[in-house]
């Protein structure tokens, strides 16, 4: 497992929940698929650590934002699938708004002009 920059992980920790919820908008998925979607979607910039993924999934389930069930994966294996709940959808919208505000704000501070 490649060693990653500490800041990447910190970044992920705040936004992982949100990204998981976002992934589930496209349909129910199990842990592996979720990780894959996030990794592919970020053009492999983000790497989802399993050590964070499962605790995050369980946390989301505790809060009622996702629900889970055991089903068969694409390869016909037994896997635990996660589904976005109504509350989860609302939460996603809230987090997305917050995220947009945040990135806009940071963008404003950092500015477009060259730093040279």
């Amino acid at each position: 497992m490649p060693k990653k920059d500490q800041s990447d992980i910190e970044m992920l920790r705040g936004t992982l929940d949100m990204m998981i919820l976002r992934t589930l908008v496209g349909g129910d998925a199990h842990g592996h698929t979720i990780a894959k979607i996030i990794e592919r979607g970020s053009e492999d910039v983000l790497e989802v650590e399993q050590g964070s993924l499962y605790p995050a999934l369980h946390r989301l389930e505790d809060r009622g934002w996702v629900s889970s069930y055991w089903g068969a994966s694409e390869n016909n294996r037994k896997a635990k699938f996660y589904r976005l709940t109504v509350a989860g959808k609302k939460q996603l919208l809230r987090e997305r708004d917050r995220w947009r505000q945040m990135t806009r704000a940071i963008g404003l501070v950092m500015g477009e002009e060259s730093l040279g």
Binding site: H32, Y54, K80
Partner: peptide, 14 residues
């Protein structure tokens, strides 16, 4: 959780 991790491993291995 153990089951879940197991299934992840299998997916990845496949």
């Amino acid at each position: 959780v153990q089951n879940e991790i197991e299934s992840y491993l299998e997916e990845e291995a496949a």
